[in-house]
Design a binder for these strands. Structure first.
Lengths: 192, 192
DNA sequence: ATTATTTTGAAACATATGTTACAGAATAGT
DNA sequence: ACTATTCTGTAACATATGTTTCAAAATAAT
């Protein structure tokens, strides 16, 4: 028996996410957010909550979108090693072509250590990727597509942990070729 | 013909560094800094400058200390591969025992992409480590201690780029064993 | 059409924040 | 001891910042 929300909440979250992505949590001001979202702060507080709650929504949006994309992309690939390759190559593409480095990694280094709620979202995202990859690694080991190590857990960690270094490298050098060479070497290492 | 500065500037910088290290650039307030440094803002502005200049001094202090420590530690080791091992093991120790993750990496992800002066310091630090390591890698390749690849530049990048992933992992899981296993695997990979 | 309820916009609020002003204290060189 | 100069502490300043207030607008259900 009353008025409905006027703005598209998902679109607004996505716009806010872009601001946080570029400026970080502490670097983003409420006025940056309301301007980008195209709504007034009273509407924001009324429908979503304060800055921190909005940030949580934004990083959830970010991580959930990535999860959906990864699941979709890897689903149809039969060879587990080929799927791993695809995942790594997609990461390289994102790292070297997106305007900002990964929001999850930036958030991890900026505030995850001191913000429990944020850490929970980051952990969930990490766990998802870990589960996705360890499944592939296990299958690849079974099929003898991977023989470099039998320790699937370590190997999954090992693979995953390359991405933030690649982001770091790209922030510093903006050199796509360097990232590609490292990725090729990683792939060569695990493909034997 | 006048009064001298009362406080120990290097000590004050070191105290300020600890605050930035823990809270990040945007998360640190001037009053956090003056309190930790034990001086008031007029002395700070009078002797060092504004927040940004102080930050530059702090990250320079951080990176220069690390450079000195690395040079000192690796100088006496004869085998280049052993020196690489030592560097990696020292990094693992720092990552899993220091109260905050690397200030240079945190800074890279927080503001290096949008702050030229900061980026310059970060680049210099990166270049120093790169030069230190590529020298070892080249010598190790010459001595046939490393045979996994002949591309010293790529291999140096490859080794260096593990550290931020290990930091990320430790922030998320606080599990020393996971970092150690990855480091051991990396060492096994390059030691053949 | 009325009503009860919710959303929205403009403005304001309380506090935080980076920085400066200035008077007095301190001191290196004379 | 004097003096010119610099440093220090207190307080304040101007603006930024996260959040709230409240009246008016909108609308779903009756």
């Amino acid at each position: 028996m009353a008025r409905n929300v006027e703005f598209d909440e998902e679109l607004a979250i996505s716009r806010a996410m872009d601001v946080f992505w570029k400026k970080g949590y502490n670097g983003t001001k409420m006025r940056d957010l309301t301007e980008a979202m195209g709504i007034n702060s009273s509407s924001l507080y009324n429908s979503i909550g304060d800055k921190h709650e909005l940030f949580i929504r934004c990083i959830k949006h970010y991580t959930e979108s990535r999860m959906a994309a990864a699941t979709k992309q890897l689903g149809r690939i039969k060879s587990p090693l080929k799927a791993l390759e695809k995942f790594i190559q997609s990461s390289v593409y994102a790292i070297t072509n997106e305007p900002n480095s990964c929001l999850a990694i930036k958030t991890t280094f900026e505030i995850a250590a001191s913000d429990e709620k944020v850490q929970k979202v980051i952990k969930a995202d990490n766990k998802f990727t870990y589960n996705l990859l360890i499944d592939l690694v296990n299958k690849a080991i079974e099929k003898k597509e991977i023989t470099v190590s039998q320790d699937a857990e370590m190997l999954t960690d090992y693979i995953m942990n390359h991405f933030s270094g690649w982001h770091e490298s790209f922030i510093i050098h903006q050199d796509k070729a360097r990232i590609k060479k490292m990725a090729d070497f990683l792939l060569a290492q695990i493909s034997k």
